[in-house]
Amino acid sequence: MNIYVLVKRTFDTEEKIVLNGGAIQEDGAEFIINPYDEYAIEEAIQVRDAQGGEVTVVTIGGEDAEKQLRTALAMGADKAVLINTEDDVEDLDQYSVAHILSEYLKDKDADLILGGNVAIDGGSGQVGPRLAELLGINYVTTITNLEIDSDTVKIVRDVEGDSEVIETSLPLLVTAQQGLNEPRYPSLPGIMKAKKKPLEELELDDLDIDEDDVEAKTETVEIFLPAEKEAGRVLQGELKDQVKELVQLLHTEAKVI
């Protein structure tokens, strides 16, 4: 089984987001593997261990993303690929990323491609489906269970808290939802072995991609933090009057009805 996992380096969920001059400040912040991608890595390793084959983790980004790739290798992936766009393109969006990935994957004969269901930073959830469209293969998003029996694949996917059971076939792209598995910690021997595993670095030139072709289709107009939560108000008086006042306020102040 030829398995690929799409991985993104994201802000640590515990980092405080600081804006400076309309941009998110990255200096000194801790970065992690996007948590949903960890489920994808774990699932890929489990599928490989059961069915044989090889797991390759792929990311797009800069030099710094090597740490996340090495962590995936330490968990048990076999190979890693860093598509380094640092010097070529400034802004990447879902379109650019899906396009670059499809150029990389088009001749790889992937049986199974896994990714997280969303990245916790951008949160678009589009890269997986877009990539599957470009490659012309089946895809199922937000999966919570995966069973592969030769070419037949049985999947349970999360639909807003309910489960949907789907049968499909390889080659296939899936995106992982929480609950799919319990990602393992990279073990100490795993971390030491990861040093010696192959990590290939590619640039857009190596993939014959013209940087103009992957220019972002979207433009970020403004970045701002959510308004700080203000203290609530406790209504006083008879219950009947309170209800009236509440309805009134929802109408005039909150303007939700």
Partner: peptide
């Protein structure tokens, strides 16, 4: 080093 950071992060999470 990268390994040292990976070990620290893993132990921290664990």
């Amino acid at each position: 080093t990268k390994e040292q950071r990976m070990i620290r992060d893993m132990v921290r999470d664990f």
